[in-house]
């Protein structure tokens, strides 16, 4: 593998729950190559989403290192992580996570504005058009269907042209047909923009579209996945 764009080295992640400590990730080492599409699969509670969050610097590993584009995310402060995401990462969530008080256009324009782009709104409009929602720019999330909301979320994630696109069960809340449409968009856009795509999914079909699949079980990469990764 050429220099990985994302590299995790012996990463553990523990949360303090009401019933005591929960070891979610128990030592994950994984490299993702630039331009690769990687699917993370595994049963519920296996730690897929947590792993994705650590890749995006949205949470901090308990131990180990997470490196993205040569930057050690585990050594960065929260603001540095935010700036890093602004420049290099886009994230899509299962529940879309659009800001309810903003229209579709404003949601998409927000990261562009944060990046100080003077043409943020023009770009946002273009991105909305690219996901087929050019005519819904002024609608609030509550006025849109789930599929439409996820397309807005996708446009928002892809708008700043990220190097890495992270998607956490992006079709989990959508019906099959809508899910397929969103999946097509996700893969098309990441390919066109040359983004590395890491996605978490329960869907074998969706995973099958990825260049590589890593299976997690009980906080660890399962052996067959390791073998697959080593090939």
């Amino acid at each position: 593998m050429t220099d990985p764009i994302l590299s995790l080295n012996d990463v553990t992640f523990t949360l303090d729950g009401n019933a005591g400590k929960v070891n979610i990730l128990k030592g994950i080492s994984l490299d993702v190559a630039k331009g690769e599409t990687l699917g993370l699969i595994g049963p519920s509670g296996s730690g897929k989403s947590s792993l994705l969050m650590l890749m995006g610097g949205l949470d901090t590993a308990t131990s180990g290192t997470v490196t993205a584009l040569g930057h050690d995310l585990t050594a960065m402060g929260e603001d540095a992580l935010a700036r890093f995401r602004l420049e290099h990462m886009g994230v899509v969530f299962q529940s879309f996570h659009l800001i309810g008080t903003m229209t579709a256009l404003e949601n998409v324009a927000t990261p562009l504005e944060l990046a100080g782009m003077s043409d943020a709104y023009e770009r946002a409009k273009a991105e909305l058009a690219a996901v087929g929602l050019g005519d819904r720019a002024d609608h609030y999330p509550s006025q849109m269907s789930g599929g439409e909301q996820q397309r807005v979320a996708l446009a928002r994630a892809i708008a700043p042209r990220p190097d890495i696109l992270l998607a956490d069960e992006p079709t989990g809340n959508l019906d099959a047909a809508t899910g397929d449409a969103v999946t097509d968009l996700l893969f098309d856009l990441s390919e066109k923009r040359g983004a590395t795509l890491v996605l978490v999914t329960h869907s074998r079909q969706l995973a099958a579209r990825c260049g590589r699949v890593v299976r997690l079980a009980d906080g660890l990469i399962s052996p067959e996945a390791k073998a697959e990764a080593a090939e």
């Binding site: 949205l58 995401r85 994230v91 996570h97 990261p111």
Partner: peptide, 19 residues
Amino acid sequence: PAREFEAAVLKTLGAVRGR
């Protein structure tokens, strides 16, 4: 909860805490 959510989304999108 709404503010927490908005702050989290904004941080995800790249907003530093000052913003």
